[in-house]
């Protein structure tokens, strides 16, 4: 797991983010999130609100977004809960970025299935473009993070870039995706294997073949 740390609380950070407040769009969503919980339990919405705050920061900075300390304080005050509890949540989950990230946050899965299917090549391909784990490139385009299993083992290896997963990657396919993103395009998310739509078995079913066409009852054949 990548080393995580909080962005230091500096006067510059306060000056930039001290006045943070939800825009009307996010405020509406925040209210809806709080409304899902019973009266007096509004703290339960902390994860949703942190996400919205991160996304709003992302919109303001043109990146995936992150959570500066003043923004976490804003969320704590919004939910009337102790700030340390908010920071506990934000530091626990990898989906909250604690330091500024680039335009595209490339999260490469390096857990066993992806590793066996070649995640090392994926990582090298990222490195070859000048990315370093835990850093943002100088042009502000890429941030590289190595993460643990994202649950796409059937279409390993994969990377998650901002909100989208790109699966069945090779170094070449990743390059295509990254070039497209850098050029302002939106490559197709999901599997990059030609002819594959989702995580169906490659080359057709090998088990439960009778199930392909109908809801076959196998019980009699045991």
């Amino acid at each position: 797991m990548a080393d995580r740390y909080l962005e230091p609380d500096t006067p510059e950070l306060r000056a930039r983010w001290g006045a943070f407040a939800f825009s009307s769009t996010w405020e509406e969503k925040a209210k809806a999130a709080i409304g899902r919980y019973p009266e007096g339990r509004q703290k339960s919405a902390v994860m949703a609100l942190l996400d919205y705050a991160q996304r709003q920061v992302g919109e303001e900075t043109g990146t995936q977004g992150w959570l500066p300390i003043p923004v976490m304080e804003y969320v704590a005050e919004y939910l009337d809960m102790p700030i340390i509890r908010v920071v506990e949540v934000a530091t626990f989950y990898m989906m909250y970025n604690l330091v500024p990230v680039g335009r595209f946050h490339v999260q490469v899965c390096g857990t066993t299935p992806c590793m066996l299917r070649g995640s090392d090549d994926i990582m090298s391909a990222c490195m070859a473009r000048g990315m370093r784990v835990g850093h943002t490139t100088d042009d502000g385009l890429w941030t590289l993070t190595e993460v643990e299993c994202m649950g796409n083992c059937a279409s390993a290896p994969m990377v998650q870039i901002n909100d989208d997963n790109y699966e069945d990657l090779t170094a070449q396919r990743l390059d295509v995706v990254l070039d497209a993103l850098a050029g302002g395009g939106q490559p197709k998310a999901g599997t990059q294997e030609p002819g594959r739509h989702t995580v169906e078995p490659l080359g057709g079913a090998t088990t439960l073949k009778d199930m392909v066409t109908e809801n076959h009852d196998y019980r009699g054949e045991w």
């Binding site: 080393d3 995580r4 609380d9 102790p82 340390i84 509890r85 920071v87 506990e88 530091t91 626990f92």
Partner: peptide, 19 residues
């Protein structure tokens, strides 16, 4: 007084006061 918390997770967990 909520002022001590456990930040991060797993083996990286750290006990600290806010900032």
């Amino acid at each position: 007084v909520d002022e001590i918390g456990a930040l991060y997770r797993g083996e990286n967990m750290q006990i600290t006061t806010y900032l």
